[in-house]
Amino acid sequence: MRGYQHGINGKSRDMCPFTHPTTRQAWINGWREGRGDNWDGLTGAAGIHRLNELHAVG
């Protein structure tokens, strides 16, 4: 969730605060989804809708 938020806002994946491999990978996976959505133009209301979908799942 937090990784997605960083990605959708165009922030660097180097900002990942986790060092444990499993947790770090989950954060980076979210970041990748967020970056992809950012590149696809899902910002503003569309990005909020997507974030709500992810929150409901995870």
Results as ranks from 00 to 15, higher is better:
M1V: 10
M1W: 05
R2I: 15
G3M: 05
Y4H: 06
Q5V: 15
H6R: 13
H6G: 10
I8H: 00
N9L: 14
N9F: 12
S12H: 08
S12V: 13
S12R: 05
S12G: 05
R13M: 05
M15K: 10
M15C: 07
M15D: 05
M15L: 14
M15Y: 15
C16T: 03
C16N: 04
P17K: 01
P17S: 03
T19Y: 01
H20W: 04
H20E: 05
H20Y: 07
P21H: 04
P21T: 04
T23H: 14
Q25E: 10
A26D: 12
A26E: 07
A26F: 10
W27G: 01
W27I: 03
W27H: 00
I28Q: 02
N29Y: 10
N29S: 14
G30T: 06
W31R: 00
R32C: 09
R32M: 10
R32T: 14
E33D: 15
E33Q: 14
R35F: 13
R35G: 02
G36N: 09
G36P: 15
D37Q: 11
D40V: 02
G41W: 08
L42F: 10
T43G: 02
T43C: 04
G44N: 01
A45V: 14
G47W: 04
G47N: 04
G47C: 08
I48H: 06
I48Q: 04
I48R: 11
H49N: 13
H49M: 13
H49D: 11
R50G: 00
R50A: 02
N52H: 09
E53N: 05
E53T: 04
H55V: 08
G58T: 09
G58L: 12
G58I: 12
